[in-house]
């Protein structure tokens, strides 16, 4: 069941704070990509992208305020994707 809290309007300033965070992380990821860190560059980029997507999911897409059904099925989806990626990497590594 969707909780009643999902129906309340989110204050503009909260949404604006999320946007500022997203833009700041974008600046950080561009800046870091210009610094040569070798293989670490990819991982930093993916980490920042994950942080940004968490902000979008939790606040813009209201995942933070959703009920158990949507939250659980979302985690299951991401887990399935992670297993898919994991198995592929495993295969590529030991081919």
């Amino acid at each position: 069941m969707v909780e009643a809290s999902a129906e309340h309007p989110q204050p503009y300033r909260h949404l604006l704070a999320v946007l500022v965070g997203l833009l700041a992380l974008t600046a950080v990821t561009v800046a870091v990509s210009r610094v040569h860190l070798g293989a670490l560059n990819v991982w930093v980029a993916i980490l920042i992208a994950s942080l940004k997507s968490s902000l979008v999911l939790l606040f813009f897409m209201h995942l933070k305020y959703e009920g158990r059904l949507i939250r659980t099925t979302f985690v299951v989806t991401v887990f399935t994707l992670a297993v898919l990626i994991g198995l592929l990497f495993w295969d590529v590594e030991f081919r």
Binding site: P11, L16, V18, L22, F59, F60
Partner: peptide, 15 residues
Amino acid sequence: LTSSFTVAASISALR
């Protein structure tokens, strides 16, 4: 990113 913000804000405005 900015357009995502304005879409989220439009839902708040409607509510």
